[in-house]
């Protein structure tokens, strides 16, 4: 599945009400480690049908960044049934990202 750009308008529907677990990548274009992780997250989205993958640009979505108290990027979070079930900060190898889910 392709990666969904999450914003404050679609967050509730795409993440909170999602039937599948959602991997969310909080990122920004000026952050090197985010750009390292970005393609790995894209690959995971391509490979896995059992989850949904979304990205939140913290520059464009400061409300969502504040709501989830993002202080360090990249931050990866997994939502299940509208709740954060796991999270990690900083660049991680793909295997470790897959283990989050």
């Amino acid at each position: 599945m392709s990666v969904i750009a999450i914003n404050k308008e679609n967050f509730h529907k795409e993440v909170m009400l999602s039937e599948k677990p959602v991997l969310v990548d909080f990122w920004a274009p000026w952050c090197g480690p985010c750009r390292m992780v970005g393609p790995l997250v894209d690959e995971i989205a391509e490979e896995r049908d059992d989850i949904k993958v979304g990205k939140i640009n913290v520059d464009e979505e400061p409300e969502l960044a504040a709501q989830f108290q993002i202080m360090s990027i990249p931050t990866l979070m997994v939502f299940k049934d509208g709740e954060v079930v796991s999270k990690t900060m900083g660049a991680r190898p793909k295997a470790q990202i897959n283990e989050l889910i």
Binding site: R35, M36, P39, A91, R92
Partner: peptide, 11 residues
Amino acid sequence: RMAAGGQIAMT
């Protein structure tokens, strides 16, 4: 292990 860059990706 991750992506091209190493330490300079943080710069």
